[in-house]
Amino acid sequence: MPGRGIPYPAGDPDLPPPAEQAWRRRLVQRALEAVTTAIERPTIFDVREEAHA
């Protein structure tokens, strides 16, 4: 899952705090989707924030 930058894999300091919280929550939710998905090879799980904003 790509984050938004090496220094903050689960955050985004450019966002105001409530939006950053929402982004982090979305990342963890997406991670949970990833671990419950059957895959056969290394797979990138993109995170689209707007779907859950």
Partner: peptide, 18 residues
């Protein structure tokens, strides 16, 4: 950025809520 909010590296706050 990490030291201003360490949850940016280890997302404990969001995981705890979930």
């Amino acid at each position: 950025a990490a030291n201003a909010d360490p949850n940016r590296v280890l997302p404990l706050d969001a995981a705890r809520t979930l």
